[in-house]
């Protein structure tokens, strides 16, 4: 039994507990918001310039390859946001902390948005390159399932009147849906499909030219900053809405 990891875990968790106080979280959110918003705007300006103007065209796909800079980061975010949502749900289930539940709730529509962008741009990219808007291959199907999981998660939140019960039911569903994440990631390796296998995060390093990798990474950074900005915004709104409903209830029951 080594004590060190547990001590580190305890230290992080006590630090996290300080931020779990909604008032502290709101103050932190107000302080972070301008930074993440301007980072997002700056990365989008630079990233879009490189993606649309300053990067070379593909020798086969010509300008169509530029869809990649919108499509691939959206796919990464669709998976990443779900992983974050599931982690927050697990934290909410274990430590019963409303802020973790609320961040999972706030993240879900953003993740669903990224998934939709990924599906739509994928269809627009597939039409000129594969000759079809949609094929039922493993990668496309599993991402579509991910989209439905996001929708089911959001619908489950809406279905309960009591936010505490809604949070726990939705958290269980989010954790059940985690089985889909490895399927999406490895679908291109397990099945021999039309969608190409991973070409950026491979053991041999990125298999894509640096002139195209740079705009891709810039756009990925921009998407991430966008997610953080909108998440902070939505989380603030959720906390304030929760407070408002508590106040309203207090006034209704004298």
């Amino acid at each position: 039994m080594s004590g060190l990891p547990w001590a580190a875990l305890a230290a992080t968790s006590s630090a996290m507990h300080r931020f779990a106080n909604p008032t502290v979280a709101l103050r932190l959110a107000d302080r972070l918001m301008p930074w993440s918003a301007s980072l997002c705007a700056g990365l989008f300006v630079v990233g879009l310039y490189y993606a649309l103007v300053a990067s070379p065209i593909d020798y086969q796909q010509r300008d169509t390859v530029r869809i990649m800079y919108v499509h691939v980061p959206a796919a990464w975010m669709a998976l990443g946001v779900y992983a974050m949502m599931a982690t927050a749900s697990a934290v909410g289930l274990v430590w019963k902390h409303p802020l973790a539940d609320l961040s999972a709730k706030a993240a879900a529509p953003i993740g669903a948005g990224f998934t939709l962008i990924c599906l739509v741009t994928g269809a627009l990219w597939g039409q000129p390159t594969w000759g079809t808007w949609w094929v039922w291959d493993a990668r496309l199907t599993s991402v579509l399932i991910l989209f439905f999981l996001y929708l089911g998660y959001m619908a489950l939140w809406q279905a309960y009147d009591d936010p505490g019960r809604a949070a726990r039911a939705a958290a269980i569903l989010a954790l059940v849906g985690v089985v889909n994440l490895p399927v999406i990631k490895f679908s291109v390796d397990w099945w021999n499909t039309l969608h190409q296998p991973a070409s950026v995060f491979t053991l041999q390093g990125p298999k894509i030219d640096p002139s195209m990798l740079k705009p891709l990474m810039l756009m990925a950074g921009a998407y991430l900053a966008f997610f953080v900005t909108v998440l902070i915004y939505r989380l603030k709104a959720e906390i304030l809405a929760r407070r408002a409903s508590v106040l309203r209830r207090a006034r209704a029951e004298p």
Binding site: T141, I145, F148, L149, L151, G152, A155, L156, A159, Y160, A169, I172, L173, V176, G177, V183
Partner: peptide, 29 residues
Amino acid sequence: IGAALTLGVRRGGVLLSLIVLPLYIPVLI
């Protein structure tokens, strides 16, 4: 799982199919 999650929920049937059917897809395939 779906039936237990939608216990005592308004209009649980529609919600149940939205939750369960995506998870059924692999079995179907």
